[in-house]
Amino acid sequence: MTSEHVERIVLGDVEVLRITEWQGPFAAARDLVPDSTAGLWQENEGWLAPDHWDPAGDLAVAALQSWVVRSGGRTVLVDTGVGSGRERPGSPLFHRRQSDLPGLLARAGVRPEDVDVVVNTHVHADHVGWNTTADGEAWVPTFPGAQYLVPAADDFHFGPDNGYGQGRQEDDRLVYEDSIAPVHRAGQAVLWDGEHRIDENLVLESAPGHTPGSSVLRVASRGDRAVFAGDLLHSPVQILSPSCNSCFCLDPEQAVASRRRILERAAGERELVVPAHFGGPGAVEVRRSGAGFALGRWAAA
């Protein structure tokens, strides 16, 4: 299943465009969310299928997407996908993948020079790939006038100062060298930690665990609220069972703590939760349910 499309949501004075490059079966459900049980998926089949789970193959369904956020007269791009033609030998789905995020952005009326801020919620291959574009044999920033906001903890962890995550994977080195280092060389990278306010409507907050610098972007405008949750959530089953991490979380205990904190606040403050990889409508309300959480209404783009 593939689906390239653009959708629009309005939150107060903030316009959000959802740019979907791809959606389809991604991995075995309990490989993606190892602590989940077969029963958790089966008991919720009625709404998990087909947007979030393929029961026939027991496969989690995911989306590869970015978000354009227009706020205060500026254009903010949240995450930049896998990129095109990247060497990712450890990730078969991403290795030398051909994609066209700039083309999708153009269809939404966004040129590279229109982007004022790029937010990388964290430094993983599918969130920073279109940070840069090939120029001959060099990689250069795709968005020439943009400030790139990169979590300082991830820049250290995956960068050369910490030996590319202490040599965790070859892909980590490749991602940093082709998607982060060129932005530094161009003088467009801004490292931040803790909290970083973009404007009166948008603020970045650290939510570590998935990676050391994982972050969320909060939107608050004229009573409307949303939280772009990055990879704190890969599947809606993690809302029902927040103790379940994805297989990609580097610090499982910290990831659970961050996930619970973000969900607790979303339920208490009626924030729309917008994870990076949810298929279907892509965003959902969260409610308290006893000591845990339940899903409310899905967003209508």
Rank of each mutant, 00 (worst) to 15 (best):
S179R: 12
S179M: 08
I180D: 03
I180T: 06
I180N: 04
I180R: 08
I180K: 07
A181M: 11
A181S: 12
A181P: 03
P182R: 09
P182H: 04
P182A: 04
P182V: 03
P182Y: 03
V183Y: 05
H184C: 01
R185K: 12
R185S: 04
R185H: 09
A186Q: 09
G187K: 02
G187N: 02
Q188H: 07
Q188E: 03
Q188M: 08
Q188T: 00
V190T: 14
V190D: 00
V190L: 13
V190E: 11
L191T: 01
L191H: 06
L191C: 00
L191Y: 06
W192H: 01
W192Y: 10
W192D: 00
D193E: 15
G194S: 09
G194H: 11
R197F: 06
R197L: 10
I198F: 06
I198H: 01
I198A: 02
D199E: 07
E200S: 13
E200R: 14
E200M: 03
N201Q: 13
V203D: 02
V203K: 09
E205D: 13
S206W: 06
S206C: 08
A207M: 09
P208K: 05
G209W: 03
H210S: 11
H210N: 14
S214A: 14
S215W: 08
S215R: 08
S215G: 06
V216N: 03
V216H: 04
V216K: 06
L217R: 03
L217F: 06
R218H: 13
R218T: 07
V219N: 05
V219S: 05
A220V: 15
A220I: 12
S221G: 12
S221Q: 13
S221Y: 12
S221M: 13
R222Y: 13
G223M: 12
G223L: 12
D224W: 15
D224F: 15
D224G: 11
R225T: 07
R225F: 08
R225W: 08
R225A: 13
A226P: 11
A226Q: 11
A226V: 09
A226K: 11
A226R: 10
A226W: 10
A226I: 08
V227P: 09
F228L: 15
A229D: 11
A229W: 09
A229R: 09
A229P: 11
A229E: 11
G230M: 10
G230V: 04
G230R: 07
